[in-house]
Simulated scan of single mutants.
Amino acid sequence: MTPASRRWAVAAGVPCALAVLLALVVAPVDAVQGPIQRLMYLHVPAAWCAYLCFFAVLLASARHLRRRTSRSDRLARAAAEVGVVLTAVTLATGSIWGAGTWGTWWVWDARVTTTVAMGLVYVAYLALRGATTTRTPAAVVGVAGFTVVPVVHFSVLWWRSLHQPPTVLAPDLTPPLDPLMGLALAVAVAALTVVTAWVVSARTAALSRADAAAAVPADARELTGAPR
């Protein structure tokens, strides 16, 4: 493990361990939903970090359109990949949570529908990026696609939905979370944010190495032992 990886491991491991302790031991069981409510400590951070990833796609894509830098393009791709995975985690944990509280695994309400749409936008971004040699069309999608993110967040306020109002950044959260639940959720969000930054950073570095290896001529790769 490289020194940078060790630093990331420490930075991520400490808040993750604390988040698990707070979520499973310290925070009380929800009086109405029971133990299944503890999925909130993964479901909400996953959704929040997906938003952050797609915001990173927006910034990196905008930078790429302005300066045509390969580094920005790689960052956008890495963030989109991680964001799509986090969106899948959000939908999966929400489905399990819904089965325990709503009595059904899936409901096409406003939040679920817009979240699926958000994931598909960035799947399309990745598909377009892989299908074309020029990165400009994908970068345009990376910028324009972010418009779906606030729609997802505010969907439960704009339309009727089974889903509860936003737990994070809710304009009128009523009733407020139990203080220990709020603490556990805050730590869980912070922990997954660090993990997400680590994974995006590592994936960006991997893409950079792959691009560098692809740029080496075939005869030079044979001499240096670089992968083909």
Score class of each variant (00 low, 15 high):
residue 34 G to K: 08
residue 142 G to N: 04
residue 19 A to Q: 05
residue 118 M to F: 01
residue 164 Q to V: 05
residue 189 V to W: 09
residue 2 T to Q: 09
residue 205 A to T: 08
residue 151 V to C: 08
residue 146 F to G: 04
residue 63 R to E: 14
residue 111 R to S: 07
residue 129 R to T: 14
residue 199 V to Q: 09
residue 22 L to Q: 08
residue 99 A to S: 13
residue 205 A to C: 03
residue 141 V to H: 07
residue 181 M to N: 15
residue 228 R to S: 15
residue 103 G to W: 00
residue 53 C to T: 02
residue 130 G to M: 12
residue 206 A to Q: 11
residue 171 P to C: 02
residue 153 H to V: 05
residue 175 P to G: 14
residue 135 R to W: 12
residue 97 W to N: 06
residue 23 A to N: 04
residue 115 T to C: 08
residue 176 P to I: 10
residue 127 A to G: 13
residue 90 T to E: 06
residue 155 S to V: 01
residue 72 S to I: 01
residue 103 G to I: 03
residue 89 V to L: 11
residue 208 S to R: 14
residue 48 W to L: 03
residue 28 P to C: 05
residue 16 C to H: 10
residue 134 T to I: 09
residue 93 T to K: 07
residue 91 L to W: 00
residue 54 F to C: 06
residue 196 T to L: 02
residue 7 R to Q: 10
residue 210 A to T: 12
residue 211 D to G: 13
residue 115 T to H: 07
residue 83 G to M: 02
residue 206 A to Y: 00
residue 21 L to V: 13
residue 78 A to I: 04
residue 51 Y to R: 09
residue 188 A to E: 02
residue 19 A to T: 01
residue 87 T to D: 08
residue 30 D to F: 00
residue 158 W to P: 02
residue 211 D to K: 06
residue 109 D to R: 03
residue 103 G to A: 07
residue 117 A to E: 10
residue 190 A to M: 08
residue 34 G to E: 09
residue 76 A to P: 03
residue 6 R to F: 09
residue 154 F to E: 07
residue 218 A to W: 02
residue 137 P to E: 12
residue 225 G to V: 02
residue 139 A to P: 12
residue 85 V to Q: 04
residue 182 G to Q: 13
